[in-house]
């Protein structure tokens, strides 16, 4: 298992946002984390990457918790945030170098691996630019490139389909497929259900800080007794139930 979340409760300060969240991401799988605004997607991700501490329950990445082996935990994890935040004092090239250093990658090898990715994202002639001069999409591509050059076992992508142009989304999904083939797994949160439906192997549906349903598209269809339903239909049916 790349990621195992067991009975996780937590949130910001005194207010618990997540209640007893349990799900897992098996090796070589792409899992979509689906939910309305405020359902707890970002909070869940913040717990996984260690920005928030669980109130109870546990999170294991590659079999270890943050408390038991911080270095292995972090080494196995790469993250692409929803809002791109870069270091204002580093050029694009230096951002990539910094990530190589932080993950202890071989610089030469990593640069060679990066080459096709930079070309795909049309970044190779902007290596000496500062983030101040980047567009929002470029920022996001830099983050994706930094994350995907690591040898992490688990990739967490927060809202990957907002802010990227269709070509970039296509390229990102290509990268995801490559990593998946290498045995890594991906957890991505999103509202863009149509893309998630084709990109993810299975889904975790969150609502009010609880896991409402998990499973592949077929399993979800069976659960809600709607044959041939799209993810969109399932999602609407679920949120409709909430409302009632």
């Amino acid at each position: 298992m790349s990621l195992e979340i067991n009975a996780l409760s937590g949130g910001y300060g005194q207010v618990p946002v997540l209640h007893d969240v349990t799900f897992s991401v098996p090796d070589g799988q792409v899992v979509g984390l689906i939910g309305l605004n405020g359902a707890g997607k970002s909070t869940t991700i913040k717990h996984i990457i260690g920005l928030l501490k669980p109130r109870s329950g546990s999170i294991k990445v590659g079999g270890v918790t943050l408390a038991s082996d911080e270095n292995t935990y972090r080494q196995n994890l790469a993250y692409v945030p929803e809002t791109p935040v870069l270091y204002p004092d580093l050029t694009l090239r230096e951002h990539l170098e910094l990530t190589m250093m932080a993950y202890g990658l071989d610089q030469k090898q990593a640069l060679a691996d990066l080459e096709p990715m930079l070309e795909k994202f049309r970044l190779q002639n902007k290596l000496n630019w500062f983030p101040d001069n980047f567009s929002k999409g470029m920022n996001q591509k830099v983050m994706i490139a930094s994350a995907f050059m690591t040898h992490a076992k688990l990739f967490i992508i927060d809202e990957p389909f907002t802010g990227l142009d269709p070509l970039a989304i296509h390229d990102l999904l290509d990268l995801v497929r490559v990593k998946k083939a290498e045995g890594a797994s991906v957890l991505m949160s999103t509202h863009v259900l149509a893309t998630a439906e084709t990109a993810a192997d299975s889904f975790v549906l969150l609502g009010d800080g609880q896991v409402k349903a998990t499973g592949t598209l077929d399993e979800l269809r069976a659960k809600l007794h709607i044959a041939d339903a799209s993810l969109d239909d399932i999602y609407m049916a679920m949120t409709g139930e909430e409302g009632r």
């Binding site: 270095n71 972090r74 993250y79 935040v85 270091y87 990530t99 932080a102």
Partner: peptide, 11 residues
């Protein structure tokens, strides 16, 4: 404020 400062596998 840069999230990577917190998630890099560096002590």
């Amino acid at each position: 404020d840069v999230v990577f400062t917190h998630i890099y596998p560096v002590d």
